[in-house]
Simulated scan of single mutants.
Amino acid sequence: MIEAAILYAFACLALALALNLWRLLKGPTTGDRIVALDTMVINTIALIVLFGIAFESQIYFEAALLLAMVGFIGTVAYCKFMLRGDIVE
């Protein structure tokens, strides 16, 4: 039963990533693209955690944590660049 739930979750995350990619490419404003990229990072983190559950390995959870930290810093940097035109003050 858990295998079916994992396959369904993989399918849902694949659809979510495809829709995020569409918004990233077609977004009318830069803000929409930044939000789409941040949502894409969150969905990728969920995908990595799902791989960890499917393969019963702890290394995937550590990779998801690292990606979460890098994704947060990247989103903050994009937003600062959009508002001020410079990342480092």
Rank of each mutant, 00 (worst) to 15 (best):
I2E: 12
E3C: 04
E3D: 12
A4I: 14
A5G: 02
A5C: 04
I6S: 01
I6V: 10
L7I: 09
L7G: 06
L7K: 15
Y8I: 11
Y8M: 05
Y8R: 08
Y8K: 08
A9C: 13
A9G: 10
F10Q: 10
F10G: 02
A11M: 11
A11R: 07
L13H: 07
A14D: 04
A14I: 05
L15D: 13
L15F: 14
L15E: 05
A16K: 13
A16V: 12
A16E: 03
L17M: 14
L17G: 09
A18K: 04
A18N: 04
L19F: 10
N20R: 07
N20S: 14
L21K: 15
L21D: 04
W22V: 08
R23V: 00
R23C: 01
R23L: 00
L24C: 10
L25Q: 13
L25W: 08
K26R: 15
K26L: 00
G27E: 02
G27L: 02
P28V: 09
P28A: 13
T29D: 13
T29L: 02
G31R: 15
G31T: 12
G31I: 08
D32C: 03
D32G: 05
D32V: 07
R33C: 06
V35P: 04
V35N: 06
V35Q: 06
A36C: 08
A36M: 03
L37C: 14
D38M: 06
D38Y: 05
T39S: 11
T39M: 12
T39K: 11
T39E: 08
T39P: 00
M40N: 15
V41F: 14
N43Y: 04
N43C: 03
T44D: 05
A46H: 02
A46W: 09
L47K: 10
I48P: 07
I48L: 09
V49P: 05
L50P: 09
L50H: 13
F51P: 05
G52C: 09
G52R: 10
G52P: 11
G52T: 11
I53M: 13
A54Y: 15
A54I: 01
A54W: 15
A54D: 09
F55G: 02
F55P: 03
F55S: 09
E56W: 12
S57T: 11
Q58V: 07
I59T: 15
I59L: 13
Y60Q: 02
F61K: 11
F61I: 06
E62V: 12
E62R: 04
A63H: 12
A63Q: 12
A64C: 03
A64I: 05
A64F: 03
A64N: 08
L65W: 10
L65G: 13
L65D: 02
L67I: 14
L67Y: 03
A68D: 07
G71A: 01
G71T: 03
F72N: 04
F72L: 11
F72I: 00
F72Y: 08
I73T: 09
I73M: 10
I73S: 08
I73D: 04
T75W: 01
T75P: 00
V76C: 12
V76T: 11
A77H: 07
Y78C: 15
Y78W: 13
C79L: 11
C79F: 08
K80E: 02
L83T: 07
D86P: 00
I87V: 15
I87W: 09
I87C: 07
V88H: 06
V88M: 06
